[in-house]
């Protein structure tokens, strides 16, 4: 799933139509109405908790709602691996949490691997299993506990990095040379299995 998909609010396309494109959008011909097809779409909409706005115009939905529809679109073709590029970008805190929960639930229920790239791993920390941390042209890989520690991140950046635990959240704070973090040349690839 690409990072940003702009959906024109004037486009005559309902949320369920977009999910339907995931089944057979690449095939020629008209989408003929069939009960199995409709059931498939309905089930998927329910799985991502989107039945409420299934008939709404997809361009009119909020960022979080659109993200859920796009996930449903990607899932309906029954992939074994779901790749998401910055799925949490441009979302407010509430929607961010909803999407994270949804992804974790899908990974568990549908038994598929979910691979996410993100600049901000904080919202994903509670649910992720393994991480590939890329910074300064180097990588660190392992479980969350192994990688997100003061020791391994300090080694990765070449400056002192503190990892602070606040409630159940983790904050990564850099030492004097803050540029590395602020310029955003870090990228984490997070895996939920």
């Amino acid at each position: 799933m690409p990072q940003r998909i702009t959906l024109d609010p004037d486009m005559p396309l309902r949320a369920r139509d977009l999910v339907g494109l995931g089944i057979d959008g690449q095939r020629f011909g008209l989408p003929l109405p069939s009960t199995t097809r409709r059931k498939q779409v309905d089930d998927m909409l329910e799985a991502v908790d989107a039945t409420r706005f299934a008939e709404s115009r997809v361009g009119n939905l909020s960022g979080g709602e659109q993200q859920r529809i796009l996930i449903a679109h990607a899932l309906i073709s029954r992939p074994r691996l779901l790749l998401l590029d910055e799925p949490l970008a441009n979302l407010d805190l509430g929607s961010e949490q909803e999407v994270v929960d949804l992804l974790a639930r899908i990974a568990r229920e549908q038994r598929i691997a979910v691979l996410i790239s993100t600049h901000d791993m904080n919202p994903l920390l509670p649910v992720m299993d393994r991480i590939v941390y890329i910074a300064n042209g180097r990588i660190a890989t392992g479980t969350t506990a192994e990688v997100v520690s003061s020791e391994s991140l300090t080694k990765l950046y070449g400056v002192h990095v503190d990892v602070i635990h606040v409630h159940d959240r983790i904050l990564v704070v850099a030492g004097r040379r803050e540029e590395a973090l602020q310029h955003g040349d870090t990228e984490s690839i997070v895996e939920l299995v």
Binding site: D24, Q26, F28, G29, L30
Partner: peptide
């Protein structure tokens, strides 16, 4: 004949 792929590529070309 092209309805579905045309629709698909109009809505989300990359996907």
């Amino acid at each position: 004949l092209m309805y579905r792929p045309l629709m698909f590529s109009s809505v989300m070309p990359d996907v």
